[in-house]
C-alpha cells in the first residue's frame, strides 16, 4: 500500500506533457489524493477549460500510479477553486526560466477588466534583459504568450499569469 507521501512522490515524476520540465504537482493541477487500501483517488483541476493536454495528464497520472502498485486509480476533476499560476512554486518557476520560458508574474485578481496593455515588460529568460516586447497574446498553448528580446534577439515563451 502506498502512503500519501509516496503517491505525491510518484506524481512528482509525471511531467506536464506540454512543458515537461515541471511535473503535474508543480503545475498545481493535482489538488488532493485519497488512499483507500490499494485504490487511489486523485483530485485534479484543469489549467484552461479547453486545454487539450488535460486528458493526457489524467492518463499519465493513472498509468504512473498503476505501475507503482495501485490496484485502481480514479481521477476526479474539480473546477473549484479555479487553477491559478500563483500555485506554481519558486523552484518550478526557476525550472521554467532555465528551460527558456519566462515564469508567470502575480495573477491579476484585482481590477475587473483590464482593457489596456499597461503591463511591465517580461524579463528575457535567456539574458535577463527587460528590453522585451510582447509579440502575441497567445502562444503554442493556451497558457503561454510569445515575446521577443531586443537585447539578445531571442523569441521566448511566457507562462501567462492566470
Amino acid at each position: 500500500m502506498l502512503t500519501r507521501d509516496e503517491v505525491f512522490g510518484v506524481l512528482q515524476t509525471v511531467p506536464d506533457p506540454e512543458v515537461p520540465v515541471i511535473s503535474v504537482v508543480e503545475l498545481g493541477v493535482v489538488r488532493d489524493v485519497e488512499i483507500t487500501g490499494r485504490h487511489i483517488t486523485v483530485t485534479m483541476t484543469p489549467t484552461y477549460s479547453g486545454c487539450p493536454a488535460m486528458r493526457e495528464m489524467e492518463a499519465d497520472v493513472k498509468a504512473a500510479l498503476l505501475s507503482r502498485g495501485a490496484d485502481s486509480v480514479e481521477v476526479r476533476m474539480v473546477l473549484t477553486p479555479a487553477w491559478t499560476t500563483d500555485w506554481i512554486g519558486p523552484d518550478a518557476r526557476e525550472k521554467l526560466r532555465r528551460y527558456g520560458i519566462a515564469p508567470p508574474g502575480k495573477a491579476d485578481t484585482g481590477g475587473f477588466v483590464t482593457l489596456t496593455r499597461a503591463r511591465p515588460a517580461v524579463p528575457c529568460p535567456f539574458c535577463g534583459s527587460a528590453e522585451t516586447r510582447l509579440q502575441s497574446e497567445f502562444g503554442s498553448t493556451a497558457c503561454k504568450a510569445i515575446h521577443t528580446c531586443s537585447a539578445c534577439g531571442s523569441p521566448f515563451d511566457e507562462f501567462k499569469a492566470h
Binding site: 477549460s49 479555479a82 483590464t114 496593455r117 497574446e137
Partner: peptide, 21 residues
C-alpha cells in the same frame, strides 16, 4: 454553475482584452 462561471470568467477576461484592443 458558479464553479464553471468562476473558471470561465478568468479566461474570458483575457479574450475581452484581446478583442477590445
Amino acid at each position: 454553475l458558479a464553479a464553471i462561471a468562476a473558471k470561465s470568467l478568468k479566461e474570458d477576461k483575457y479574450h475581452l482584452r484581446h478583442s477590445s484592443e
